[in-house]
Design a protein around this nucleic acid. Sequence first.
DNA 1: ATATCCCTTACGGGTATCCGTAAAGGATAT
DNA 2: ATATCCTTTACGGATACCCGTAAGGGATAT
Lengths: 221, 221
Amino acid sequence: MFKRVLIAEDMEDINKGVHALLTALGVNDIQQVQYCDDAYLKIKRSQLDNEPFDLLITDLSFKADHRSQKYASGEALVEKINSEFPKLKVIVFSVEDRLQRVRNLFNKHHINAYVCKSRSGLKNLTKAIDEVAKDATFLSPEVANAFSAHNDLEIEDYDISLLDHLSNGLSQEEISVLYQNQHISPASLSSIEKRLNKLRIQFNANNAIHLVAIFKDLGLI
Amino acid sequence: MFKRVLIAEDMEDINKGVHALLTALGVNDIQQVQYCDDAYLKIKRSQLDNEPFDLLITDLSFKADHRSQKYASGEALVEKINSEFPKLKVIVFSVEDRLQRVRNLFNKHHINAYVCKSRSGLKNLTKAIDEVAKDATFLSPEVANAFSAHNDLEIEDYDISLLDHLSNGLSQEEISVLYQNQHISPASLSSIEKRLNKLRIQFNANNAIHLVAIFKDLGLI
DNA sequence: ATATCCCTTACGGGTATCCGTAAAGGATAT
DNA sequence: ATATCCTTTACGGATACCCGTAAGGGATAT
């Protein structure tokens, strides 16, 4: 089982709940922070002191307040941790249940477990800690199908950027010239129209507005 | 101070935090539920037993699970409570910080306080309980300007419905015939165009897609 | 080299949208 | 009744979007 665990979570009461859970699991060195930057500093410090943490449990969303932060979100923190301290195990504990986000966290930032905050959040967190301690990964049941196969039709970063520009008010023509300037291919108006047509079919959207709304609901943009 | 308090909140750990807070404030009869329907039933029951609750603290979002619920959200619960038990004080305790939502809760459902879950959520909840006990209202600092004056340009329900239909993939023409059938005025294509134009100017949107995206971000649809 | 395949681009016609102007209808005031 | 104001509707032109077809350009295989 883990010995030194760090909790990054900006809601004090949840902080307490996770703390109580870890105590019950027999972890005696538990530290807590309410800001991502503090999390990074504590981890850095522990490495220098040769007493590294062996588990980080972090939320994704940290409300901004007066303190300006270098790492504004749990995602940014996780990315940094993964590149600088790849051996540190990471469990993300968040209300977020959008599959694309979860996929990204595993694929890009190599987290070890993802637990949804919900009715049985603490129960799942317990399981996650067990699995991660055994070098396995864990996925909350709410997002279990994030990696199921029936999601063949891949959505590329290009599609995301396209929809993002649309949602920011650019016309398809404007996006075309933008892509030409940025040397992003395909850039022609015709190709952009084709790609949007493919996505409309894929997502059962009637038109571009509908498509943007669907992407927003899915949390893709 | 309050004697009988009901907490409706689907995350168990937050439930505990609020419970601990109320205990510290000297409330000795505290009950908790994790589903909106249970909240309604308990309140109904307490009325019949002539031992009514005098405060409800509820979340807004309850994740759906296997149990099908009559009241799916805290909003629906609050609406019902307000119409059936207008004397019961209500404090909403949620992460939601969209001003329009908060306004609606006060104006339409006459809640007594709104507290944002955040770092200092429990501190603000304490204040809210104090104020509500004194028959005053309370608004979390995060959403304090929900009722500030500089928001003159009113957004009507008509505008919301218009953007909602657009985001669901209807064309302006289709919305026009829909409104004619539903006897909603104005219904003509020209009027719909005019209204959208007004909103585009008001929200600095380049086109309808942009407008829908903005409305989604603002949580208006 | 030729063929084949896939992706990108070009173009044209139909429809939807954006935007201005003007007419029609309702309510109120004089 | 007439005038005035505001809202709703109608219409036309410019632009953007939707959709099909076809042409160009690489990459690979035969």
